[in-house]
């Protein structure tokens, strides 16, 4: 799988592995990002992994784009798609409630009971394909096909941080409050982004996520723990 190294202005290259969403493609993107992080090429400032492409930002005073494109191409050819250690997060999820605005509509659209929809939603292990759009905002792949649903025609003005939703064939966890056209099933007490924490960002591209349904009472306890600054979830390294 030889990627295309595309021009993305005078300070960035886009290393495109595929035009599709695919876990093995995404693993290569993340492996190249890690390689460039561990053993940087001169002039590279930072990289942005996404589903199937890695943006490589560079300083043209330190390296010219044409030369860097060749070096990145060589580096990409040398990386393996052997899975590196990944982290699994068990994410508590309160279905319905103030954030689960679309739960019942989605069940009706899919001819499922709410219980069946919940069971289906929590059945897969999701993959964090990328963090983007907003600080710590996680795009998840692995949503069961029956739950694929187009975004709302008109976005809502404000969804709370922690809201969990569906957009097309993806799922997401909101990291900050803001407008969204996704369809939301509930919320997690976890904070994906908190600039005051020593580790401001909870999830990273390449992580795995399993949702664990919790009751309103359990969610309230977890909210209180999070508000008190306690760590309520640890990742498992695999």
């Amino acid at each position: 799988m030889t990627p295309k190294v595309l021009c993305a202005g005078d300070q960035a290259l886009a290393v495109e592995f595929s035009s599709r969403i695919d876990a093995s493609v995404n693993a290569r993107v993340i492996a190249l990002a890690k390689s460039l992080g561990d053993d940087p090429l001169p002039g590279v400032r930072e990289t942005v992994p996404s589903y199937r492409s890695l943006l490589v930002c560079y300083d043209p005073e330190a390296v010219r784009g044409a030369a860097l494109a060749e070096a990145v191409q060589r580096r990409a050819a040398a990386i393996s798609d052997a899975a590196s250690a990944s982290r699994l997060w068990r994410v508590p999820l309160l279905f319905g409630g103030s954030a689960g605005l679309d739960l019942e509509d989605l069940a009706r659209m899919k001819s499922l009971s709410v219980e069946e929809l919940i069971a289906l939603f929590v059945s897969p292990e999701y993959r964090v394909y990328m963090i983007g759009f907003a600080p710590g905002f996680a795009y998840l792949g692995g949503l069961p096909a029956l739950l694929h649903t187009p975004r709302l025609p008109t976005p809502r003005q404000r969804l709370e941080a922690g809201a969990v939703g569906i957009g097309g064939e993806q799922a997401n966890i909101n990291s900050v409050a803001g407008p969204s056209g996704w369809r939301f099933v509930g919320r997690t007490p976890l904070r994906l982004f908190d600039p005051a924490r020593p580790e401001p960002f909870l999830l990273a591209a390449g992580d795995a996520v399993r949702f664990v349904p919790v009751s309103a009472a359990e969610a309230a306890d977890l909210d209180a723990a999070v508000a008190a600054g306690e760590t309520i979830v640890e990742s498992e390294i695999r």
């Binding site: 993305a8 202005g9 035009s19 599709r20 996404s50 492409s53 943006l55 990328m130 983007g132």
Partner: peptide, 11 residues
């Protein structure tokens, strides 16, 4: 529509 990717400054 493309599969979302990184947006460089000035895109």
């Amino acid at each position: 529509d493309i599969v979302s990717d990184g947006t460089p400054l000035g895109s």
